[in-house]
Computed example of a mutant assay.
Amino acid sequence: MTAPYRCPNCKTNRSRFNLIKQEAQSVKIDPHTGDIIQEYSSTTLEPFHLPYNGPSIKVQCATCGLIEDELTFVKFGER
């Protein structure tokens, strides 16, 4: 997204941010050991395994450390 950001927590930072790219990995884990039993692709998910539908980017304020969705920083930057 190309838009000005502003931190909703410290309210002063408009220029220093860390962009965190999120990459979901769908797995089935053994409930007793925690070992990965199976990895899934987005086309081979089982019926009760929902695909990840969260944001692909999170933003961290490099001044105060707040981490939120990118849209939160964009909406506060509009003010």
Rank of each mutant, 00 (worst) to 15 (best):
F48C: 05
S56M: 12
C7E: 02
F73N: 00
Q38N: 09
F76H: 12
K28Y: 10
T72D: 15
E68C: 07
P31R: 13
I37G: 00
H32E: 15
K58L: 13
L19Q: 08
A24K: 01
F17E: 03
Q60R: 10
S26I: 13
P4M: 15
Y52H: 01
T44G: 08
E23G: 06
R14D: 11
E39R: 15
Y5G: 02
C7T: 01
T63H: 13
K21L: 01
Q22P: 00
S56K: 13
C64R: 03
V74F: 09
A24I: 00
A62D: 11
K21R: 07
G54S: 13
E78L: 09
A24R: 00
A3G: 07
K75M: 13
T33P: 00
I20G: 04
T43Q: 13
G77F: 04
K75G: 02
Y52R: 00
V27L: 11
L66H: 04
S15F: 11
T2V: 11
R16N: 08
Q38S: 08
V59R: 10
G34F: 08
S56H: 12
T44Q: 09
F48A: 10
F76T: 09
L66G: 00
L19E: 08
Y5M: 10
P8E: 04
F73R: 02
R14S: 09
G54P: 08
D30Q: 04
D35F: 06
H32A: 13
I29T: 08
Q25K: 13
P31N: 14
T44A: 10
G65L: 01
S42A: 11
T72Y: 13
E39Q: 14
Q38T: 13
P4G: 12
F73D: 01
R79N: 11
Q25F: 10
A62S: 12
D35R: 07
K21T: 10
E78I: 03
N18L: 12
P4F: 15
V74P: 01
T72E: 15
I20S: 04
M1Y: 09
T43N: 09
A24F: 05
D30G: 00
L45G: 00
I29C: 01
K21S: 05
L19T: 14
E78Q: 12
S41C: 08
F17S: 02
E46T: 10
E68R: 07
Q25M: 12
L71E: 11
S42K: 14
V59I: 14
T33E: 03
D30H: 09
E46R: 03
S26W: 15
E68Q: 10
Q25L: 14
I37T: 10
P47K: 15
K11Q: 10
H32D: 14
E46S: 05
T2F: 14
